[in-house]
Nucleic acid binder design. Structure first.
Lengths: 201, 201
DNA sequence: TACCTCTGTCACCAGTCAGTGACATAGGTA
DNA sequence: TACCTATGTCACTGACTGGTGACAGAGGTA
């Protein structure tokens, strides 16, 4: 098949790298056929040939999920501690990964074949992450709507990471300051321990 | 001045309305000079004359802040109850206002004169909202980093409202279902009451 | 040799974009 | 009357967009 052709593979890789770089730097607006071809230093017709257009290119990018979440292996512990640690690591990884932030923000604005292709790959990764947590810690405490609480905390993690990119402020907090993130980490831990009924007991 | 000319004012108002409608429906991508002029049924040169271009048009939109937050007056109560009620109302208003959601999402992606103009007006509105809460309830409980906790909960409210627009799922929750929002409301209240140390006492 | 497939390049298409200059017309003023 | 200002219309430019068809050359195969 075409996989055996080293020239084709090299060009494919160049296009993929250019697309990822472009998305991370310029954002979704810069991700057009012409711009990607220009950045990759090849003709745009090759993107149509090798990926079937932008949509196929996005699928290929989503398939390369070395990027989504780079969390390490947390030490096993009880549910709350483990979840808090993983969420904190996730937030840090997010703040260090402009490409993923762009994609997350992009998903909020546009529902296109591109976003769907990327989004499904990301959903699968997040599901796997949650299952890893459950496997490590056992089930969540009973009588508490853990999925809803966790969704709220993950949503906040996403949103605050995204807000740092632009004006850098949110609800009176200055997200450019490292101390602010320490406060947020502490507040997040506080919310989790209190919500799961740990400390008051 | 030009304010005395009714024809100019009528055209200005038509352009503003068209821009708001367009942004709410099509999103920020559709907000171009040509598209606004087309929707307003006038020539684009009038947008340049009356608003100085898209940037001035965005400033004018931000100035019309009848829209940002439409919350009513909550009954005075203790800090947590009042805050929880206002946050819940805010979330509902957000889910019912596509235009504001578009603008919030837009701010996450682009830092342009347009977003800055709109964003500053919104920040002022949110600050005023917080001050209204404090005025009604007195200071936050001591020993708790209320700004950080509240920022987290507001961030989550924003993010979940934004996620409903597109794929409608987040972290395993189906945001298209009304029951899901009831669960989120309950979880949000639970988080606040526990975090502020109310229930365990 | 002749043939064929694949890679890569180039030129072109129609459509849209932001922005500008020229013009017709209406309303008010001297 | 004549003049002037402001509203609104139209046509146009230059640059970019996504997308397609034609072509040149390389490499392998019969």
């Amino acid at each position: 098949m075409s996989d055996s052709n080293p020239a084709r593979e090299a060009t494919r890789a160049r296009i993929l790298k250019a697309a990822k770089d472009l998305l991370g730097q310029e954002g979704f607006q810069g991700l057009g056929i012409n711009a990607v071809a220009r950045a990759a230093g090849c003709d745009k017709v090759l993107i149509y040939r090798y990926f079937g257009g932008l949509e196929g290119l996005a699928e290929a990018m989503g398939g390369q999920l070395d990027l989504w979440i780079g969390q390490g292996d947390p030490a096993p512990g009880d549910y709350v501690d483990t979840l808090a640690a993983m969420l904190r690591d996730y937030g840090r990884a997010l703040r260090g990964n402009g490409l993923v932030r762009r994609i997350l923000a992009w998903e909020l604005l546009e529902t296109s074949p591109l976003t769907r292709a990327l989004g499904q790959a990301k959903s699968a990764a997040i599901r796997a992450w949650f299952q890893a947590v459950r496997a490590r810690t056992g089930p969540a405490p009973e009588g508490i709507d853990a999925p809803a609480i966790n969704a709220i905390l993950i949503a906040a993690t996403h949103h605050l990471a995204l807000r740092e990119d632009n004006d850098g402020t949110f609800a009176g907090l200055d997200l450019k300051q490292p101390e602010t993130w320490a406060r947020i980490d502490a507040a997040m831990s506080h919310l989790m321990t209190q919500a799961y009924g740990k400390a008051p007991l």
